[in-house]
């Protein structure tokens, strides 16, 4: 799976870089929303086929919030450390680390608010977070626990990294992963506005 993911990423990058245009590939690349929606239906089917999952989820209630809370706190502390280590302003550091892997939003938003250089760092660092997640999810699933696989993925745990959760964890973690992604994605714009208001 990881090897397939690397091949797909390299092929896609080469195709994008080459400047060639094939109608089918261009259509696919520019309609990722539909691919994602179809993926979600398929994931839902897997969850629906797993009969005890609803009963299992009922046990958790508010514990569900622990994972996104841990992710956000870890990322924010990470942003503070980055600010000191790299000697960068606290505002930009926190906004970048608070992107939680959502590179498209943070890249553009921080670029508009703090200039192209910070926009590029926000884009690249959050993209790296997503790509690194692909590779560490299988390792975390074996060495730590299934739920922790959601942590590196951050806001992407509801879409791009979700299929890795499906492959390497269980149905219950997949549901946690989707809900975590929704919560984190809702928090990213909030974290960003708080950073630009406070600092």
């Amino acid at each position: 799976m990881v090897i397939l993911a690397v091949i797909a990423l390299i092929l896609g990058t080469l195709y994008g870089f080459s400047g060639y245009e094939f109608t089918v590939l261009d259509y696919l690349a520019s309609h990722t929303d539909y691919i994602l929606y179809l993926t979600m239906v398929l994931v839902g089917i897997s969850v629906g086929l797993h009969e005890s999952i609803v009963e299992q989820m009922k046990k958790y209630h508010l514990k569900l919030l622990l994972i996104p809370t841990g992710i956000i706190i870890g990322s924010i502390i990470g942003g503070v450390i980055c600010s000191f280590v790299l000697n960068e302003p606290m505002r930009e550091s926190l906004a970048i680390s608070g992107g939680l892997g959502w590179y498209s939003l943070t890249g553009v938003a921080i670029g508009n608010l703090s200039g192209a250089e910070y926009g590029s760092i926000a884009f690249l660092s959050n993209l790296m977070r997503e790509i690194i997640s692909f590779f560490v999810i299988p390792i975390i699933a074996i060495k730590l626990n299934y739920y922790t696989c959601i942590a590196p993925a951050g806001a992407t745990s509801e879409d791009t990294t979700l299929p890795m959760m499906i492959r390497y964890t269980d149905e219950k973690t997949v549901v946690f992963s989707v809900l975590n992604g929704v919560i984190c994605s809702a928090c990213v714009p909030v974290i960003m506005s708080v950073c630009y208001t406070l600092f």
């Binding site: 994972i67 841990g70 956000i72 980055c82 960068e88 739920y147 959601i150």
Partner: peptide
Amino acid sequence: KSLVFCLIPTILSTIIVYFLTERFFDRDKK
């Protein structure tokens, strides 16, 4: 610089979530 901005927050998130889930969640996942 981008790599540092990626790694430190990601590692800290992972450590915190690991401790939270080990402490508060069922151990039925390996």
